[in-house]
Design a protein around this nucleic acid. Sequence first.
DNA 1: CGCGATATTGACGAAATTCAAGGCCCGTGG
DNA 2: CCACGGGCCTTGAATTTCGTCAATATCGCG
Lengths: 241, 241
Amino acid sequence: MEFSLHLNVSRGFRGFAIMTAAFAISYYPTARPEPATLSDSLAVLDGVGAVITLRRDEPLFRPGDAAEFYFKVLKGAVRSCRVLADGRRHIGEFFLSGDFIGLDAAAHYIFAAEAIIETTVIRYSRRKVDALAAEEPRISQSLVEIMRSGLAEARERMLLLGHMTAMERIATFLLNLSERRSDGRINLPMTRTDIGDYLGLTMETVSRGLSQLKGDGIITQHGMHELAIAKLAELVELTKP
Amino acid sequence: MEFSLHLNVSRGFRGFAIMTAAFAISYYPTARPEPATLSDSLAVLDGVGAVITLRRDEPLFRPGDAAEFYFKVLKGAVRSCRVLADGRRHIGEFFLSGDFIGLDAAAHYIFAAEAIIETTVIRYSRRKVDALAAEEPRISQSLVEIMRSGLAEARERMLLLGHMTAMERIATFLLNLSERRSDGRINLPMTRTDIGDYLGLTMETVSRGLSQLKGDGIITQHGMHELAIAKLAELVELTKP
DNA sequence: CGCGATATTGACGAAATTCAAGGCCCGTGG
DNA sequence: CCACGGGCCTTGAATTTCGTCAATATCGCG
């Protein structure tokens, strides 16, 4: 009994979440149609899920809430964040269209998820997804693969937060975001404060960094929340020591 | 067809790695003896594995090596690290006795693992472990749980690296390490430079932080690589804003 | 005992934060 | 349509923290 499993995990801004999985099933030639991706697998549950629309700054869940759902962003943007006792705020991740939220939660969420702009998400019953995973090794293996790439991404971010300068962090952030689009443009739905809390910098430092990139002609600005990369090679250069 | 799965993930310094899983199998009363923990599951493979002894600074693997094995530390300590082009070094994790290494690797390792002191590890064939996981949903679900707690830990470290002061990082590090023992003592097999590269600080800043803790009577030193916590409450206080 | 590696401590400097002022964008209402 | 106002962004100056460079001390091992 043998089968080959081929997982194709795209490593974009949140490669974690934009996984596709192709299963080549060789030991069971008459297999019924199988879900081709985790997304498709979850789509089976859409009937029990719900599409939810959130206004700006509206929470999807809060720290301490029972983690009963997985979510997928359909449109808009979500941030996960924790606030420390003295007011310092840490943003764990930004979730854009197609990203999953909460796959890695324990029994209760330890952070909040809030819409950055008007956002629609689809909500899956975690209980049902997990039951499916228990019956289908391929589903739980897909989850393992998603966790692996999530961990790989977390490691990159630890490197960034621990050892990169402000400009290196900003350049890396912009490049990661630009990989979510194909036209060299960058959509920044979040505020400068959000970016700062994500990169471990202050709003002012982020603003200064962007200003310098504009001054150097490396990026151009088209409205407050839309940038374009003018000199990709130089931006890439800035991500390195 | 129903069974209950109970995972008991202890959240120590690297809770990730010191997982125990208890499976209560109710749907198959005549089940053959099942591995009770992932560790036990892997122990089944010990015959094909090997115990390896490493000298100080000797690598277990290097970046780019094919990720063909999982490892478990039996004795000693291992660090995972990456070196940037300009010489900056980032330490991803410290692995102490009982910790697993490489569970989350992709096809190739992207970082090096090196013994910090004389260390023995056991090496498991990844291919065989993964095959086992493909046949046993419980194994792959255990892997999911390990990944979940690994991600939770990574998130804590991102918060630390992104938003904590030098002293907060040092105090948190010491507390985490102290949880690996039950006597309030702290074993620091690694150098100050290692600690700095792990916390995103310089060796000097780490040294100054430890000196201040000694001066304040919060910790006492017993040899270069052995500390004791004298005022736990004050140390805990330092981990918070 | 003596040497090399590691750790500590001090003085100085650079990078980012903090504090503060002003500008810009956008929605709202007259 | 335009004026107003509030939130967000930008920019400047002072401050702080941590890093860098350098000298000295201590550890551990042959």
